[in-house]
Design a protein around this nucleic acid. Structure first.
Lengths: 151, 151
DNA sequence: GTGGAACCTGACGTTCACGTAAGGAACAAG
DNA sequence: CTTGTTCCTTACGTGAACGTCAGGTTCCAC
């Protein structure tokens, strides 16, 4: 058998940042606070390398952040869903067919998803309420303008 | 004619803060950066006094802030709608029946409202999209759990 | 008019989320 | 093997949005 480890290929941090519309500094910072997993195993000093999957995860994280306006700490909690999915995938592939463990992980991830859904639903209805109020305001304004210009 | 000005009554800053769920410092800060109008005319050193209307405005501002996750600078821009409505009310009552001026103010406020509505609609559809994605994820998870427990 | 509570105005401190600069090492190309 | 670009780590800087403290004042109730 060959002792050669898989050729370490992947996107570099600058390219990733460009792809998702942020900066290398931000990516490193997210890794630093534990929001993102370290960019591939590497010995200190070597370049971080990212797979397309990592790019997608980052994109998703930034999307959640801008959409919900949450702190990075809250975002971290929200992203635990993905971590759980990752853990699950590991258990699945890594030859651990312990059904009980899988069930635990699934149940936990499910809980997180439902929590997120609650948050989103609440947010959405609040926004909808605000939209209705503003629409009413707009109608009133349009009516006033109509009255003015017909005078 | 009496020279007595109206008795300066109203809520004090601590009470207002309690009512809307924030702190006096925050209210003073908002006034400082021009996000809120000064709490009633007063000579330096005197206590700020607020009318119930002011409380509502503040509550609305905080609601927008938390809902949209915008900076105070953006929030300030959003609140210009209210300022315009205030200006309009002044023109209306203060004996300035200049229809042209009123039309200008109305048109401007209308523009701001429509801008806000666009922002909200966008936000809402993005959230809805995320909800659909998460709901799909949840279904998938539930199915997996079902498969596991039926094994 | 005398407490005591709440408020006033500065002014400095703090946390978050990065920006920026320095000195050096890794990496792709020739 | 050189060279230019990109990246590395470390560390200090920054703007936003307040928190906190000091020393004094206003207000309300007695």
């Amino acid at each position: 058998m060959s002792t050669a480890t898989a050729a370490p290929t992947g996107l570099r941090i600058g390219e990733v940042a460009r792809l998702v519309g942020t900066t290398p500094r931000t990516i490193r910072y997210y890794e630093e606070i534990g929001l993102l997993p370290p960019g591939g195993e590497r010995e200190a000093g070597r370049h971080r390398l990212y797979a397309p999957r990592d790019v997608e995860r980052l994109r998703e994280a930034l999307r959640l952040k801008s959409l919900l306006g949450v702190s990075l700490e809250e975002l971290k909690a929200l992203l635990e869903v993905e971590e759980a999915r990752g853990a699950l995938r590991d258990e699945w592939h890594h030859g651990n067919p312990d059904a009980g463990r899988r069930g635990e992980i699934l149940a936990e991830a499910l809980g997180h998803v439902e929590q997120q859904l609650e948050l989103l639903a609440h947010r959405r209805t609040e926004i909808a309420r605000l939209e209705r109020e503003l629409t009413a305001k707009r109608s009133e304004m349009l009516e006033r303008i109509r009255l003015l210009s017909s005078a």
